[in-house]
Simulated scan of single mutants.
Amino acid sequence: MDTRQIAQRLVELCREGKYDQAQQELYASDAVSIEGDGQKAEAVTRGFDAIRTKSKEWADNLVEIHGGSVGEPIVAGNWFSVVMGLDATYKDMGRVAMNEICVYQVRDGKIAHEQFFYDMGGA
């Protein structure tokens, strides 16, 4: 798949809430995931297995999802971005509404890099 196809597939799966399937299908084994500006060591996750563990910990912390949104992807070469929103209640933070810009890099037909830019608490 090319970058546009991967972007469309990711959006499709995220809109269906199939985050695990998206990672299984679309992520490279050596993918890197960065939260926010990546300045803290724990903000950078390296490797497919570590990304899956991070996702599982996030899912285990969820109490309830109240709503969400997934925008259309914007593609530029091997990169694409998607605006996503989530209103959810977490065990450790209570109810939080957030919007984020998700940026992805595709290499050899797989997502090799993702980074999330967001402010907590804004709907």
Rank of each mutant, 00 (worst) to 15 (best):
G67S: 03
I34N: 00
I34S: 00
R9F: 04
A43T: 06
V70P: 00
A41C: 06
V11E: 06
F116D: 01
L26F: 05
V75M: 08
C14K: 10
Q23V: 14
G71N: 08
N99H: 10
H66A: 06
A123I: 01
E16H: 05
G67M: 07
E12D: 13
A31M: 12
I65S: 12
G121S: 01
E72A: 13
K40L: 15
F117Y: 15
R15W: 04
E42Q: 14
W79E: 13
A59Y: 10
K18M: 11
I65K: 14
A28K: 02
G94V: 07
D119Q: 10
L86R: 04
N61Y: 05
A7V: 03
A112L: 02
T3G: 03
H113I: 12
F48K: 13
C14D: 15
E114S: 12
E100I: 06
Y27V: 03
S33G: 08
T53C: 02
R95G: 08
S33I: 00
E57Y: 05
V70A: 12
D20S: 15
C14W: 15
V106I: 09
D49Y: 05
I6R: 14
G67A: 05
Q5E: 15
S69G: 09
Q21F: 05
A31R: 00
A28R: 06
Y118T: 00
Q24H: 12
G109S: 06
A123R: 08
D30V: 14
F48C: 03
Q21T: 15
G85K: 01
G85I: 05
G47D: 02
F80S: 03
W58K: 10
M93F: 10
T45K: 15
C102S: 13
K18N: 09
E64N: 14
D108W: 03
R46N: 12
Q105P: 09
L86I: 11
G47M: 07
R46S: 13
V63M: 10
A50Q: 13
F80H: 05
I51Y: 02
N61A: 09
A41N: 09
H66E: 02
I51R: 00
I6D: 09
K40S: 10
E100A: 11
G77K: 08
G67D: 03
W58S: 09
F117T: 06
S29M: 10
Q5S: 13
A31T: 08
E42D: 15
V83A: 04
G122Y: 09
G68T: 07
M93D: 05
D108M: 05
S29N: 13
F116A: 02
Y27H: 06
P73W: 01
R95Y: 03
A43P: 02
E114M: 06
E35H: 07
N78Y: 01
